[in-house]
């Protein structure tokens, strides 16, 4: 079950997968896919993690596109784990991704992991504006009506961690959509200047559940 809310005058759906859907625009927004992560770690001589996260991430994306009938897609940056990740994709995974892109208005926002030029279909942008909303990778404290990613927010509830959206009247920060991604606790100081008092966290799970955004207990900074 998704959670529906109004942001900057627009009705948006937070999906349990961590994607954001804008029904009026038939737009699906996902952030921080980190495709090719296990390949990059292996290339750098680290652990040989199960190399299945790209197909897992793509199958989640495929599912959301199928359910929402989205015609437009924005990937909010860090879509690839680094500049070489795209060329390292398995042929089968690359074709799957191209199949998802085909017939859709697809925008790649540049992130800090995939800063270089990407040789893949779709438009490539630093930021993107649709209606009153601005889409970028890293939130800018002074902006409003902004949708971003980058931080991978997560929150604790009932003794476990959940990826989550952070929402206040000025901005939305999306959770990481990629399969192999960790997170930053909401009470991290990084979020304090970005999210207004009264901000909400929408937790990803079977059902998208809303709680007040957990914050550090002392604001003596």
């Amino acid at each position: 079950m998704h959670h529906s809310f109004v942001f900057s005058g627009e009705t948006l759906h937070a999906l349990p997968s961590g994607a954001l859907f804008w029904p009026d625009q038939r737009l699906l927004v996902v952030s921080d896919l980190h495709l090719g992560k296990s390949e990059r770690l292996a290339r750098r001589g680290g652990s040989l993690l199960p190399p299945y996260e790209t197909r897992e991430t793509l199958s989640r994306l495929d599912h959301d596109l199928d359910q929402t009938h989205a015609t437009r897609v924005i990937c909010l940056g860090d879509s690839f784990d680094d500049a070489a990740a795209l060329s390292g994709l398995e042929e089968q995974d690359r074709l799957w991704l191209l199949r998802l892109i085909a017939g859709r208005d697809w925008t790649w926002i540049t992130g800090n992991h995939d800063a270089g030029p990407l040789d893949i279909a779709g438009s490539h942008r630093e930021t993107c504006r649709i209606g009153t909303l601005t889409f970028r990778h890293i939130a800018e404290a002074t902006d409003t009506a902004e949708v971003s990613g980058h931080y991978h927010p997560k929150a604790r509830l009932a003794g476990r961690a959940w990826r989550c959206f952070l929402v206040d009247p000025r901005r939305i920060i999306l959770p990481a959509f990629g399969a192999y991604t960790g997170g930053l606790w909401c009470d991290d100081p990084a979020f304090a200047p970005l999210m207004a008092p009264g901000a909400l966290a929408i937790l990803c799970g079977q059902t998208a559940r809303v709680i007040p955004m957990p914050r550090a207990s002392t604001i003596a900074r």
Partner: peptide
Amino acid sequence: GRQATFSSDILYDTLRKYD
């Protein structure tokens, strides 16, 4: 770099599903 590390549960679930 807490964003960089992720739970081993994710690896367990992925392995069970794909391998």
